[in-house]
Amino acid sequence: MSHHPPEQGNAADAEARIAAVQQADSAQALLRATQELARCPEAHAAPVLVEVLGFNNPGAAVAAVDGLIRLGPAAVEALLQLDPDNYGARAWAVRALAGIGDVRGLELLLEALGSDVAASVRRAAAKGLGQLDLDLLSEAERQRVRACCLEALLAAGADGEWVVRYAVVVGLESLAQGLAAESPERLRAQAGLDALSEAAEVTPPVVQQRARLALARLAIH
């Protein structure tokens, strides 16, 4: 976009791309316009991208989630204001919040992992709970949030779907990396991984293998 004059041209361009999403009159047009907008979104595009999550257009929703993750923390307010009764939109929002890693998404991620009916939503939430960005919190707050995530992930280690248990392994690994070695929380996370690394009727080899990899990485760190 270097041929545009700085600032003004980009702003006008952003407005045009937002308008294209709002005026799209077919599924194909919505998909293309959302992809365009998601490529380099600006903060005020967030509510528009969030709206796309509720349009029952999976291709456009995938693009919108990418755009929202690209926006990062600037997209969180809009995501949290989503209509709680629009199930489809909420499922996509969980994926966006999991990808952004903003701690304001904690409650929604905990709820999704514990009770969402779709395994694809639970698996996104499990991964997201392991990678929340806690840098700006006080030490006490950080500990509280990590404890919440740890409990939720350990409980979801018994999820009925293998892919959720796989995501729990990924979440526990990244969570444990932020915990002090030898701390009780770290040991609990490792015990959870240990259980998932063992051969069991309900634990497929791929989950065991991923858990062993996580334990090996944690042993090095």
């Binding site: 892919v163 796989y166 990924v170 080899p205 791929v206 293998q209 991923r210 990899l213």
Partner: peptide
Amino acid sequence: ERGSGPPGDEALLACMDGLL
């Protein structure tokens, strides 16, 4: 679970992690 040869397990698992 069923394959062998390259890419190795770790590359496959990293790809799966990215799709969650």
